[in-house]
Protein backbone atom coordinates (compact mmCIF):
# COMPACT_ATOMS: atom_id res chain seq x y z
CA UNK A 1 0.00 0.00 0.00
CA UNK A 2 1.55 3.33 -1.01
CA UNK A 3 2.12 5.73 1.87
CA UNK A 4 1.25 9.44 1.81
CA UNK A 5 4.38 10.45 -0.08
CA UNK A 6 3.47 7.97 -2.80
CA UNK A 7 6.31 5.72 -1.65
CA UNK A 8 5.80 2.01 -1.22
CA UNK A 9 5.84 0.78 2.34
CA UNK A 10 8.78 -1.11 3.72
CA UNK A 11 8.11 -3.50 6.53
CA UNK A 12 10.73 -5.29 8.58
CA UNK A 13 9.27 -8.24 10.45
CA UNK A 14 11.45 -7.71 13.48
CA UNK A 15 9.24 -8.94 16.27
CA UNK A 16 11.29 -12.14 16.28
CA UNK A 17 9.00 -14.24 14.12
CA UNK A 18 11.30 -13.88 11.13
CA UNK A 19 14.18 -11.51 11.78
CA UNK A 20 17.27 -13.13 13.35
CA UNK A 21 18.95 -9.76 14.04
CA UNK A 22 21.93 -10.58 11.88
CA UNK A 23 22.67 -7.07 10.60
CA UNK A 24 23.03 -8.06 6.94
CA UNK A 25 20.49 -5.39 5.91
CA UNK A 26 22.20 -2.76 8.06
CA UNK A 27 25.60 -3.25 6.42
CA UNK A 28 24.38 -3.23 2.83
CA UNK A 29 21.80 -0.39 2.93
CA UNK A 30 23.38 2.22 0.64
CA UNK A 31 21.75 5.03 2.61
CA UNK A 32 22.75 3.69 6.00
CA UNK A 33 19.21 4.12 7.26
CA UNK A 34 18.62 0.82 9.10
CA UNK A 35 19.53 0.54 12.78
CA UNK A 36 19.91 -2.62 14.83
CA UNK A 37 19.87 -2.71 18.63
CA UNK A 38 20.35 -6.27 19.81
CA UNK A 39 16.75 -7.33 19.11
CA UNK A 40 15.18 -4.24 17.66
CA UNK A 41 15.34 -3.08 14.06
CA UNK A 42 14.30 0.38 12.98
CA UNK A 43 14.72 2.22 9.70
CA UNK A 44 14.44 5.83 8.73
CA UNK A 45 11.32 6.13 6.64
CA UNK A 46 12.36 9.56 5.32
CA UNK A 47 15.74 8.52 3.99
CA UNK A 48 14.90 5.07 2.61
CA UNK A 49 14.46 5.05 -1.17
CA UNK A 50 12.78 1.62 -1.29
CA UNK A 51 15.66 0.35 -3.42
CA UNK A 52 14.94 -3.20 -2.19
CA UNK A 53 18.60 -4.06 -1.70
CA UNK A 54 17.98 -5.00 1.92
CA UNK A 55 15.16 -7.28 0.82
CA UNK A 56 17.67 -9.33 -1.21
CA UNK A 57 20.36 -9.26 1.44
CA UNK A 58 18.13 -10.58 4.21
CA UNK A 59 18.85 -14.32 4.49
CA UNK A 60 15.44 -15.16 5.92
CA UNK A 61 13.09 -12.87 4.03
CA UNK A 62 12.08 -10.64 6.93
CA UNK A 63 11.82 -7.48 4.84
CA UNK A 64 8.89 -6.76 2.59
CA UNK A 65 8.23 -3.85 0.28
CA UNK A 66 4.78 -3.46 -1.18
Amino acid sequence: MPSQQGKKTLHIESSGQLCIYCGACVGICPLNCIYLDETRITFDERICTRCEICVKACPVGAIEIG
Binding site: G23, A24, G27, N32, L36, K56, P59
Partner: peptide
Amino acid sequence: DGFESQIGRWAGLPTNIALRDMDSCL
Protein backbone atom coordinates in the same frame (compact mmCIF):
# COMPACT_ATOMS: atom_id res chain seq x y z
CA ASP B 1 31.78 -2.08 14.60
CA GLY B 2 31.72 -5.03 12.25
CA PHE B 3 29.87 -5.71 9.01
CA GLU B 4 26.94 -3.51 10.02
CA SER B 5 29.37 -0.63 10.60
CA GLN B 6 27.87 2.81 10.66
CA ILE B 7 30.77 4.66 12.25
CA GLY B 8 32.73 4.76 9.00
CA ARG B 9 29.79 5.98 6.98
CA TRP B 10 28.90 8.62 9.58
CA ALA B 11 32.50 9.81 9.31
CA GLY B 12 32.26 9.94 5.52
CA LEU B 13 34.64 7.07 4.77
CA PRO B 14 33.98 5.05 1.60
CA THR B 15 32.73 1.74 3.01
CA ASN B 16 29.57 1.19 0.98
CA ILE B 17 29.66 -2.14 -0.82
CA ALA B 18 28.33 -3.26 -4.17
CA LEU B 19 25.79 -6.08 -4.33
CA ARG B 20 28.30 -8.36 -6.00
CA ASP B 21 30.71 -7.71 -3.13
CA MET B 22 28.49 -9.12 -0.41
CA ASP B 23 27.32 -12.58 0.52
CA SER B 24 24.09 -13.09 2.39
CA CYS B 25 24.77 -15.89 4.87
CA LEU B 26 22.78 -18.35 6.89
